[in-house]
Every structure is written in structure tokens, then in C-alpha cells.
Design a binder for these strands. Sequence first.
DNA 1: CAGTGAGCGAGCTTCCGCTTGACTT
Length: 781
Amino acid sequence: MAKNLVIVESPAKAKTIEGFLGKEFTVKSSFGHVRDLPKNTIGVDIDKGFDPDYEIPADKKPVVADLRKLAKNAETVWLATDEDREGEAISWHLAESLKLDPGHYKRIVFHEITKNAILNAIKQPRSIDQNLVYAQQARRVLDRLVGFELSPLLWKKVKPALSAGRVQSVAVRLIVEREKEVQGFNATSSYKVSAMFLVEHNGDTTPLKAELPKRFKTREEARAFLETCKGATFKIEDIEKKPGKKSPAPPFTTSTLQQEASRKLGFSVSRTMVVAQKLYESGKITYMRTDSHNLSGAAMAMAREEIEKNFGAEFVKLRKYATKSKGAQEAHEAIRPTYINVHNAGKDAAEKKLYELIWKRTIASQMSDALLEKTNITIGISTTKKEKFIASGEVIKFEGFLKVYLESSDDEEEENGTGLLPPLKKEQVLPLQEMTATERYTKPLPRYTEASLVKKMEELGIGRPSTYAPTISTIQKRTYAIKESREGVKRAYSQLTLSRDKINEKEMYEITGADKNKLFPTDIGQVVNSFLMEHFAGIMDYHFTAKVEREFDEIAEGKKQWSLVIKDFYWPFHDKVEQTLKESEKYSGQRLLGQDPASGRNVYARIGKFGSMIQIGEPDDVDKPRFASMRKGQSLDSITLEEALDLFKLPRKAGEYEGKELVIGVGRFGPYIRHDNKFYSLPKEEDPLAITTEKAVEVIEAKRESDRQKIIKSFDEDPEIRVLKGRWGPYIASGKKNFKLPKNLNPEEITLEEAKKIISSGTSDAKSRKTKRATSSKRGK
DNA sequence: CAGTGAGCGAGCTTCCGCTTGACTT
């Protein structure tokens, strides 16, 4: 039996460390927290100083039992959890739940996972910092109180099964308010003038593009300017060269990794974390949930060697990056390759791409600045003194880190195009090829992507690296927000062209407002947000977290008592909850749309138990009100009376066919025709309210025909089994299950024997579908 | 991945932070 038991938080870390230490040490992991407040009750004794009722969750029982056994037989237990608030609390909970006597355990921390760092840590043990533990307890209890008092209030006042919390509700607020800005944005336009000159050099002509810094408010002003340029000569008045430089971005943290993987690889926030976790578990990268930009000394030495070897010594510039983000606790290193001399790693395409990104970012962060030379050319106009054209170019004098990596930006359309300029002289006259004045519209701030929302949350200090991805999925699971793409609308703009002293004007079109994979607030999200804003502005304040974090810091420093901090927060908050419960009406975002022409009753749009709906009539009318759910794409504040009334017209009968009724309805997946208990989707362009019997029959026949086309082969002996043509090629269908075809088989020539064999080997498809269903139903709960 | 097509019924839902697992021979 080992004399020493070391406990860390993560099993992958435990494995690595065990290798560094001798036989005298057993290294185990706690798998994060081992105790927590009870899952289904508030678990805080409010009248007894907010005394928390900790318990060991079912899934942690075996972990604790195992550790307890090992601890009993060990001479010393080394609590080596992370050096931050949560880590300190984990150590304390371990000491408590393993029933360790004070002389039996020691608390140690290390910042690098190297043999030296760990041996040094063991030489400098300390005791558990109880104030830090109290700070964590305050954080935990506050979040529990807020979440478990606000959520039930929402169940009563808005809709069951909703949730609210210090982090998620503010994330939703960000999305709701950004949407309001986008909707309320008034685009204004102005005219941007650019000129294309021709530069002759050694018999070649190269184009030179220049722009007018001034923009014109109206078409008339733009035209007037082009008029003055008729017949003008354009002469270079000044050439100014300025050195410039670009510096690399710091190594990845969780949030910056999520942003770059989103921009460069198109990964969702959760995908990034899943893939990074795999790389971590296979030892390829360091820990992926971190807010630190810091690289260990050993990592920097490895980076230096790699850069020298691959690019040369002049490309090395070792840098220490300071962490700026609010509330950073720096328990880990930045995210980097474990071995920087390994350029490629990962089991599949996603892992490989993410690893490459991490490798490049890490290497680039230790490389020299890129040196640039910026040139600005001022071009005078002979007919006016007021305006000048400016042409600018940028030349890279020394590539530096740009050889490896450049961080992407969130701006969708960046104006670049400042490359190399042709050789030019002062006083040189430039022949004008063409001048254009183009109408350009101002744009609102962009809607959030998952990753840009994480960035914003990090700036506000809301949430932690371990919770960014879960929070993003929670607000979508509660349907406060949805991630989707929307098509833009066509917008006309005009363009004036001056060429050969003639001005032409034309109307052009652009698509505006198109969005891809952005977060949009739902009706529920907006209604819950206004409810919380109305009654709990303090908690919804963007600085609420920062404010309570300062108090937690004071608890950690021993300046404040944790239960008093909670008390000061809780009672006013609780009173407000009670008061809202008593005084506030049901909060449904109700809006009166008008009157139903048939009955004269009021028509309302509001949130119901199942989401957005329309109600005709009042709850206490003699005739019960009529209800209809709103459709996908419709929303509480934009639906019109007419659209609302249309919802009551379906399902409707559209005649008969083959002696059976044709019924038109709208289901989860759009409009459909039901006939003889079979469903036929309606094409997008068909209006379900207007469709005729003839058209319905046509749709049914077309579907029957395409179903017939799908059959490649069927067997008389067993009509259940068929070879079908699917969207992704041929497959075998047996009853309701589908099976992939091996590539070497010709689908036309499959025998029943072969088909049965494929089915009985029962691979891939049936299985993968089953697991998928299982996970999605889990999510649905 | 190959198709899908519901309507409230009596008890439950919920927070934020740590961390990955998945009964036995």
C-alpha cells in the first residue's frame, strides 16, 4: 500500500502525475466536486445563517467510497486540487467527506504539471484556506437562492418549467437587447467615392485605387462632386511612408478558443469543447477549461526551439501575456499542445483541425512582430482644392508571426485590399479610368453567435470557462433563444459612375440583413426578460456579477463574513419575490390584435402553457375562448390580426379522392395533406388555405410516383425487405429500419440472402439512430 | 442521414461550477 495519496480534480491529470512520482504515491481524481446542495430542494437553512445542507450526489458515491478506502491506508493525503475558489472548496469537501483528521492531510498547489513543480509543491504544504472556502460557499448559496426562488416564480407567472439564474438570465438579456437594437435600427445611407487610376510603368499599366475620405449625404451632392471632376487632372501631391507593426494574439483560453474555432472552423461552442476534451484525454493538449493566457517556462522553451528550427532565430520573441479578463482565477495554463514539437495530432478530422489551430496560435504567440510599411498617397484634383483622394498600401517588410497564424475578426466584411502599390513619384499625373460614387448603408451591431456571446459574457465577468458551453445550451434548451439562419431582403442602392467625362447612374441591388447561425430571442425569451427586468432589475444588471464577485473577494480576504453578505442580499431579494408573487398578474406578453369579424370577440396574442398562441374571446365568456398555437417564424409582437385568424382555418377539408377525405393541415414540419392516414408534405410555395382538390391530388400522385422510383429491388419472398434509393445513395429497408449497403455490392444484384445477412449483422444505421433518439429524448426532458 | 405529422388531466419543473462516466465475470 502506497504511503501517500494525492487527489487532483481530473483523471487525465492524475495519470500524468502518477508517472512523475515514485511507488510511494498513488494519484487519484475527485472528478470535480464531490459534494453539493441537494438536487431537488433548496438545501439552505435560511433561518440558521443560511447553513448549507451538503450531500454526496449518487454518481459521486463510488468515487468518495474509493477515496475513503485509499485514504484510510495512506500515511498522508495530499489535497492537490486547483488553486482557485472552487478548487479550495473541493479540497475542503474532500477533507470533510473522507473524514480526514487535520494531521492526516496536507493541501498543496502547483501551477505546472512537471515533476519539479510537483516535488516543490510537496515541500511547501499549507492548510486549507477556510476564507476561500467561505467565498465559494457564498457563491454557491447565492446562485441557489436566486435560481430556486426566481424559477418557481416564473412557473407561476409565465409558464411551467422555465428557469432563471444569475448567469443565464443575463445571457438572454444580451440577446434580447441586441435584437431590439437590430429591429429598431434606422439605416442611413451616404455616398462613398472611389477612383481607379491607371499607372504606367515600364510599358505596363497597373490600376491604382484611391478613395475620398469625405462621404456625401445625398445623391445630388455626390453628383455635384463628380461634375467638378469632369476634365480635371489628378496629380500626386504627397507620398508618406510610415512603419507599422502587428503583434500576435496571446495563447488560447477557453473563450478565445471557442471564438476562433467558431470563426475559422465553423464549430459550435459545445463541439469545440467536446473535441478539445478528447485531445486533452489523449494527452495532446493541456487543460481546455482555463482563463489563463500564461505559458509555462517549459512550454516557452519548447516554443523557442521549434521556432528556431522551423523559421530561424530572428522569428523568436518570447512573451508573457497578462490576463485581462474580469474574475480570471488562473488555476491552469493557457490551452497549448503538450509537446510543441508535435505539429499534427488527433484521431479524426475535427481533432486534427482543432489541434492545428492550437499549435499555430501557441507558436505564433512566441514569435516576432510582423513589420509593415504603410504608404499613403495624396492625390490632388485640379478643379477643386477642397477634396483629395487617398490611395494606401501596406507592404510586409518582415513576416514574423504572420508566417504561421492570424487571428480572425468578428466583422463580417472587412475592407482590406491594401496591397502592394506600383512605383510612384511626387508630382506624377495619374490618368483617371473611372470614378464611382456608391450609396452605402450604415449597419446595426451584428446579432450574437454562440462564440461572440461567450466573448461578451467573459468581458462582463459572467460565467466561467467550465460553464460557457452549458449556459449557451441551457438558454436554447429553455427556448429563450434559437440559433438559426435567416434570409436577407433585397435593397436597392444607387451608383454614379464618371467615365470619359460622362456621368452614368444606375440602380443596383444588394442583400441585407441575412444572417447565418445567429442567436435570436424567442417570444418566451423576450417575455421572461421583460418580466425579470421589471421586477428584478438588480439581478439583471450587467454588473451584478462583478459586484457580488467583489464581495466574494472580501470574504476570501477575511474582511467580511460570508453569511452576512448573503443575508444583506437575500432579504430584500426575497421580499421582492413575495411581493411579485402577490401583486403581479399573470405575465403573458398579451397583445390585443383586434376583433374577430365572425363573432366580434377580441383576438389576443400571448404566451400560453405551450408557447405563443392566439386566443379569441375572454376566459369568462359563456362560450369558451378558442385557441390556436402560433407557427414557426411567427412572433408575438409581429403577428397581424389576419395571420392570427388564418390559424383557425386549418385543418380544413379539401374534397375527396378515391373515396377518402383530403384534409389540409399544418404540422411540426410545415403544411401537409392527410389522405387515407398517410401524410404528404406540401411544397413551400403552396398556400395551405388556397389549395384545391386538383392540386392536392397532384401532390399525392407525385409522391406516389417518387416512392415507386425509390424502389431499386424488392423480393417476392419477403416484401418487408427492399432495396431503396435514398438521398445518400442506395440502402436496404427492412420494415422501419434502414441499413447501409457495403460499397462493393451492386444494389441491382443483391440477393435476398445477402440482404438478410446485412440486416442480421445489424450495423451502423439502426444502432446510430437508436442512440441518437435516446440522447434527444434525454435532452427533451 | 433515408422520415417526421401531439394538443393541456394533478405531479414536476429550477441555479452555477467542478469533472467525466456507462451494473458483473
